[in-house]
């Protein structure tokens, strides 16, 4: 069962990629995946909190008493989420406006608490860091894929993260499927992607 450090990193990219294999963090995945820029922004914010939270929980794992560990994890996670919120307001205000309430909601994203409880509380700092990076990047890529499908088919556009909006299908001949931009469309997309991932080999 002993995995190498490299495997701790790469497992998050495919074998345990959060929304599809672990089926965690679905709320944010459905809520902000209408444009690629929002999806990737959300992924990066989550990755930052995940890595910092994992490292700090791992560092403090001998100090935090087991009985109140969940409360301590939440304090640590909430602190980093608030930092992300403030920094995003200062340096990426349009992204902050479009992500809106989903940024404070990162606190209750199950991926974060799940990694702190299942991994970082038991393992060393380096392994926890790599685990956070792997899961975070996997989450970001999954959000990017989901939002790319929704945005391209749903509006015919592709918004490059931190860049311009590109027209993929011109609306002069393409009728955008607005359904995919709505919440039911998000569920449909996620369900189809889950099905594809279940058919794909898990190795």
């Amino acid at each position: 069962m002993a995995r190498t450090l490299m495997q701790e990193f790469t497992k998050g990219l495919w074998k345990e990629v959060p929304p599809f294999r672990l089926v965690l963090g679905i709320c944010a995945a459905l809520g902000v995946s209408t444009t690629v820029a929002d999806g990737v922004g959300m992924g990066i914010a989550t990755t930052f909190v995940l890595v910092c939270g994992n490292v700090l929980v791992s560092l403090l794992r001998k100090i935090i008493p087991a009985d109140i560990r969940i409360a301590c994890f939440i304090v640590i996670i909430a602190t980093f989420v608030t930092i992300v919120e403030l920094v995003m307001q200062a340096y990426a205000y349009p992204l902050f406006l479009s992500l809106g309430v989903f940024i404070p909601l990162i606190v209750v994203n199950c991926i974060l608490l799940g990694r702190a409880e299942a991994f970082a509380y038991k393992r060393g700092v380096v392994a926890s860091f790599l685990d956070g990076m792997g899961i975070g990047i996997g989450y970001t890529l999954a959000l990017a894929a989901l939002s790319a499908i929704r945005e391209i088919i749903g509006s015919g556009m592709f918004s490059v993260p931190f860049g311009p909006k590109l027209v993929v299908f011109d609306t002069s001949w393409y009728q955008p499927m607005h359904f995919l931009l709505t919440a039911p469309g998000a569920f449909l997309c996620l369900g189809l992607m889950l099905a594809v991932m279940n058919l794909a080999p898990s190795k």
């Binding site: 403090l60 935090i64 008493p65 301590c72 304090v75 640590i76 602190t79 930092i83």
Partner: peptide, 14 residues
């Protein structure tokens, strides 16, 4: 003590 210290650190940092 742990919870108090952690919360105080968090507050200071924020």
């Amino acid at each position: 003590i742990v919870m108090t210290l952690l919360s105080a650190l968090s507050g200071g940092l924020l």
